[in-house]
Design a binder for these strands. Sequence first.
DNA 1: ACACATGTTACTTTAAAAATAACAGGATTG
DNA 2: CAATCCTGTTATTTTTAAAGTAACATGTGT
Lengths: 145, 145
Amino acid sequence: MKSSHKLSDAVHILTYIELLPNDDLSSAAIARSVESNPSLIRRLMSQLTQAGLLTTQAGKATPKLSRPAATISLRDVLHAIDPAPQLLSIDDKTNPQCLVGGNIQQTLNDVYEEVQTAAEAKMASISLQSIIDELLVHAANKPTD
Amino acid sequence: MKSSHKLSDAVHILTYIELLPNDDLSSAAIARSVESNPSLIRRLMSQLTQAGLLTTQAGKATPKLSRPAATISLRDVLHAIDPAPQLLSIDDKTNPQCLVGGNIQQTLNDVYEEVQTAAEAKMASISLQSIIDELLVHAANKPTD
DNA sequence: ACACATGTTACTTTAAAAATAACAGGATTG
DNA sequence: CAATCCTGTTATTTTTAAAGTAACATGTGT
């Protein structure tokens, strides 16, 4: 499969809006930064808006974070773009007649849930603000700016 | 993308070999349990063998775990089939001219590594034996067996 | 009215995984 | 030693979910 980077793009969008509030915040401008297309950006922004992370206005390029960046976690962003994220995926086509094939799915489901919970706990501890702070450190440390 | 379930299949294979040692352990038989094809099974088994988790013999259908199932972790299996697993994926095509686009990749790389480490720590704590034990509980609790 | 924006739906392209095929060799049996 | 079944590996085709693109109804401000 082609691995999804929707989460990365969503974080990118939120960071852009928070860090460059005086720039052009149209979907076209953000798309130029993401090197993607405006339609994709609008779809992601729509999901972020529906999740209550972003405030937008139809017709006006004036998106704003709905809450302080310090109170938005990476997990919040993930759940905004995917209500039931699965980092690990189960093979749902196994032989039900077999002891292993017939029980491995439920078993792995339990196991993967543990891993998912651990990963999401870490994600819940990482705020958009900390990501922005780190990005600025990276930018400051660049040789040629 | 199509999300990979190689990890699930690899666990399935190891579980099958450990739990049904007196059954036919040919790639064709295992493929019937996974509902996949023998070639795929052989490729996965080859990776597991190279990682030192499985002992196989060309020409003979007699695979065996190289170590006790209690000493094989889910993380070991993951690394056997993918030396550099990435649960979250970065968008590697962003505008380098932009403050955000030019620094988001390194930033997310750091952030995702934290999440990856948390997930892998949990995976390291889950043994193949515990997965097998849980599978047997599931099998025992099935209404119609 | 016009220019430009969002929000949403539908369609096309793409790339990674899975499926399949093929075959060189090892093992076992009669 | 021929026949048969197996493994291990490579190459090719098919599938499918994400990304890319297009289109358009509708909101906004001059």
